[in-house]
Amino acid sequence: MRILVIEDQADLRRLVQGILEEDGYAVDAAADGADGLAKAQAWPYDAIVLDLMLPKIDGWDVLEQLRETHKTPVLILSARDALADRVLGLDIGADDYLSKPFERPELLARLRALIRRTAGQAKSTLTIKNLQVDLIGRTITRDEEIITLTAREYMLFEYLALHRGKVISRTELYDHLFDENDETLSNLLDVYISYLRKKLGADVIETRRGLGYVIPE
């Protein structure tokens, strides 16, 4: 899962980025509205964390312009907590609103919920074949036994699981799993897929030659 953080305050930007990265997300960051809007339009982010008081282009304008072309889920993270601001933010097209100062678990939970809902999944648990996927605890269990995955392996699996039944191209996977500064080669995807098959079972993820990967429904 890849998230864009648009925040002009350097400390806070680094911090949010750190929090999200440690939770396994691939994170891009932008320090002003113009940069943020350009990135938001260029990449297929799974969610955007948007501050409102931004230089160059303010948060409301970023959101309005983004909504003309993109449906990317947006969580507004702002110090403005007046009712009018929250209502306006949501009405312009934000999917959630969190006011500063925020609590880390809440930010993470709201982002998880946003990503889950966007994928059309309301429940926070999934069942794929004999695997139980807990989207909150980020654990996969088989017969009461927890299967240990690395953060990146889990993200890859979660992305395929949330979009199960749909063939996901290698480019799409790559775009959603690595941030803009990541220089990981795309053939590393095959390595992660093989790790996943080894841990979860060979038949969980299917390869569609020339198209991509899929977890069948």
């Binding site: 305050q9 400390d11 806070l12 008081m53 110090a79 403005r80 006011s99 609590e103």
Partner: peptide, 25 residues
């Protein structure tokens, strides 16, 4: 007053989240 509290929110967020994040492991 609103502006003042708004200006205070950002540094408070940083201290709060930074401490919480750092202590999480």
């Amino acid at each position: 007053t609103a502006d003042a509290s708004h200006e205070l929110r950002t540094p408070v967020s940083v201290v709060l989240s930074q401490a919480d994040f750092t202590l999480s492991r």
